[in-house]
Design a protein around this nucleic acid. Structure first.
Lengths: 193, 193
DNA sequence: TGAATATGAGACAGACCTGTCTCATCACTG
DNA sequence: CAGTGATGAGACAGGTCTGTCTCATATTCA
């Protein structure tokens, strides 16, 4: 039915848009720039995505799927909840140190699309909930659901805050303090049951 | 020398721009929109601010000064470090619950101006450093500087993360978990000395 | 070969953007 | 009153934005 080149072009547009959105933001990145960088005709893009907003949602969902796949992979590699959470922090530490780290694309999307009813806003909610839910599931192995939920929320906040600090040029101090704080939070939640 | 009406107009533009930037973002808010809302001529604005970017910096610095004034006020009202930090969380709890809460303007600015050499980026750095420095100074009353710095970084991350969660509609859970995590972090840093 | 589909290239519309310029008007001060 | 500086109103330039449209050109499959 659908020829394979179509899928390739579509994905290529998504990935090109991702790297541009990441560097320059959403509003500041024009369609013309995206199609020029992707070396694709404007109509090719608009045939795959009805509007720029829907392209943005697709980019976010694509990155969220990729992130969750990596997260689930990491969780399988070690046994204890502490080490599973540690793996998540390891992942962020590598991310912060990568050459083209520009902060969290989802947080940036939230900054530019503040309307809660906007599809982009909701795509961000999905991603953050996905991360929180995964951490909560990990923690429920060693604490009651209520404590696990609170602790997962705290870990999520630490991660988001660390990502912000990392973007401000304090990557090393951020991940270090976040790790220590995460240990304290988990230990505290374990005792509180 | 300088007639008083000039200062009033200027400040009025800053405050109008603030409320628009907060709701719609920086790139999405045009000059025409700002001057229409402020009921001011375009030249009046451009006589006070050479460019939109400099207006943005002025808005951020204005809000940062206001925030730090409130912070210093709160710190004087109670005695112990724990209660001073608690006051900061109280402040954020009220903020999250205010009718036109739209997340952190500084974090949003970082999302839209990702270039570290950009004046807007640097204005954000100033504000976040100001908050962190204040919390660090508070904590140094009960722990060594090294521990205080790490704990202040963790508290800053919790606050930034909580602000993000609050914008996603989880204000109550966010402030609650952040408070518990902050207690755990401070207690842990106190023991570690 | 023929037909269907995907793509390329670019003109085009209509709106919006930042920033400049001119000229009239207002308010205050000496 | 005369003069000075701040402001209002809006035209204007030059650029960019999203999204639509047309027509020519592959590519693929029957």
């Amino acid at each position: 039915m659908t020829p394979s080149p179509a899928i390739d072009k579509r994905q290529h547009v998504v990935e090109t848009a991702y790297s541009l959105f990441k560097r320059a933001g959403f509003h500041a990145t024009g369609i013309d720039r995206i199609i020029a960088e992707a070396d694709v005709a404007k109509m090719t893009m608009y045939r795959h995505f009805p509007s720029k907003d829907e392209l943005i949602v697709e980019v976010l969902d694509y990155r969220a799927r990729r992130f969750e796949r990596q997260l689930d992979q990491l969780a399988q590699e070690v046994a204890t909840p502490e080490r599973k959470i540690g793996k998540i922090f390891d992942w962020h530490e590598r991310w912060f140190g990568s050459p083209d780290f520009h902060g969290c694309l989802f947080a940036h999307a939230l900054a530019e699309f503040g309307d809660p009813t906007h599809p982009v806003f909701q795509a961000v909610i999905r991603q953050k909930n996905g991360l929180k839910r995964r951490m909560q599931a990990i923690l429920e192995a060693v604490m009651p659901p209520k404590q696990a939920e609170g602790a997962a929320a705290a870990l999520l906040m630490l991660i988001e805050g660390a990502t912000l600090m990392a973007q401000m040029g304090e990557a090393d101090a951020a991940i270090d303090s976040a790790r220590k704080a995460a240990d304290a939070v988990i230990a505290s939640a374990r005792i509180a049951q």
